[in-house]
Simulated scan of single mutants.
Amino acid sequence: METFHYLIGENGAHISWWQMGIRAAIIFIYAVFIYRIAPRRSFARLSAFDVVLSVIMGSGLSRALTGNAPLLPTLVATALLIALHSVLAALAPRFEFLSYIIKGRPVRLISNGVVDWEAAEKSRLGERDLTEQLRLKGLRGPAEVEVAYIERNGAISVVKAQDK
């Protein structure tokens, strides 16, 4: 164990550049491994639930990299965070209340060409934001929309109105 502490440095003590380099290599390999075994949704969709995991992981691993947090307990804590995230993500589709708490719910913004400005305001969307999103989807304005939602991940989904 003495050799290990020599190579990665003592926790809370000043560590040299080469000890930080070894820590960086260990953390990099570990993070790639965690990314590979974690369910794909953990890092792909970036809902608030996923962003929180990423921020906490990055913060903890960066502290371990610089020697401000112990390396091995930080790696264990990171694995536990991934496990907790995976369990909650697996349970959320089965329990509506848990899904609502963790992932939120979609909000209807447009219905039959009429914008619900109260819902847009609650979602922190102004008229320019909404029209920009519609233009990016090839629409001229709300009149061309059957229904539009701001989804749980913050994206705006649109169903185009059928030509009559």
Rank of each mutant, 00 (worst) to 15 (best):
A90F: 15
G138D: 14
D129A: 10
R128Y: 07
H5T: 14
F95V: 09
G12D: 04
D163L: 12
T131S: 14
R124S: 15
P93C: 09
A155K: 11
G104W: 11
A64I: 01
A92D: 01
M20S: 06
A79V: 09
P142Y: 03
L125Q: 05
E121I: 14
P142T: 05
I102M: 13
S54Q: 10
T74C: 03
A155Y: 04
A90K: 13
A89D: 13
L72P: 00
E118L: 14
A25H: 02
A119N: 15
A90Q: 12
R135G: 08
F97W: 14
V159W: 02
L61C: 01
I34H: 02
L88M: 12
Y149A: 06
R135H: 15
I101Y: 10
R36L: 15
P93D: 04
G104K: 11
E121M: 14
W117S: 10
A77V: 12
A64G: 00
I102G: 09
L61I: 03
E132H: 12
W117C: 09
T74Q: 07
Y35C: 15
A44V: 08
V158D: 09
A120V: 07
F97L: 11
L46V: 03
L7V: 14
I56M: 13
D50N: 10
K103A: 09
V87K: 01
I34L: 15
L80F: 13
R128L: 06
Y100T: 15
F43H: 08
I26W: 03
G138R: 05
V76Y: 03
F33M: 11
E118N: 13
I15Q: 00
S62N: 10
L84W: 06
N153G: 08
A83N: 00
G141L: 07
F97K: 13
R63N: 03
A120Q: 08
L98T: 03
A92P: 05
R135F: 06
L72G: 02
R63A: 13
L84R: 01
S59A: 15
R23L: 04
T78N: 01
V158W: 05
P106V: 05
V52W: 00
I26G: 05
I156K: 03
L65T: 00
R135E: 12
A119T: 05
Q19V: 01
S42I: 01
A25D: 06
W18D: 12
W17R: 04
